[in-house]
């Protein structure tokens, strides 16, 4: 190599090169870390993908009026806890057995009605009109000593 082009690494030169590489390293780590961080931020938390199963608490028995329902969400779909005028408790999945729309409870005539194709279900979940032939999915339910209503998710 030509004598003139050889870079002589004096102490100051060494530190300059070192500082230069440190800076590059820091920049790279920041950029990479930022990219990884942003990407993982964009994916929703894993927790959401776990399905809830077993006995889960819902509403208080006392808070529920006769002839009315309480709506609770589990695993992304609504569930109704119904108290009939005879003080009986039932729990149904709100998903219509016809084409999976969400049925609504009508307090006036004590029936579940589906907005999509107008299926009607009575308070026992049985179809009484419209295209649906299957009943609403019944969920098991129990009340503990404090009056909290638990339902069983499968």
């Amino acid at each position: 190599m030509d004598e003139k082009t050889t870079v002589k690494l004096v102490r100051r030169g060494f530190f300059r090169v070192l500082a230069d590489w440190c800076l590059k390293f820091i920049l790279l780590v920041t950029a990479g870390g930022g990219a990884i961080m942003s990407l993982s931020f964009m994916f929703p938390p894993r927790k959401l993908m776990q399905r809830l199963t077993g006995w889960v608490p819902t509403v208080d028995n006392k808070g529920l009026k006769k002839g009315e329902v309480a709506q609770v969400m589990f695993n992304g779909t609504p569930v109704y806890v119904l108290k009939t005028p005879e003080d009986k408790l039932f729990c149904y999945s709100a998903v219509c057995p016809h084409a999976a729309c969400i049925v609504q409870w009508s307090t006036d005539d004590q029936h579940f009605k589906c907005p999509c194709h107008e299926s009607v279900f009575d308070s026992l979940g049985n179809p009484s009109g419209g295209p649906a032939t299957e009943p609403l999915t019944r969920l098991e339910l129990k009340t503990d000593e404090t009056g909290k209503i638990f339902i069983k998710l499968v």
């Binding site: 961080m37 942003s38 993982s40 931020f41 994916f43 938390p45 927790k47």
Partner: peptide, 9 residues
């Protein structure tokens, strides 16, 4: 509290 790195962002 839920999203990863959400607190930081």
């Amino acid at each position: 509290f839920e999203v990863s790195f959400g607190w930081l962002i």
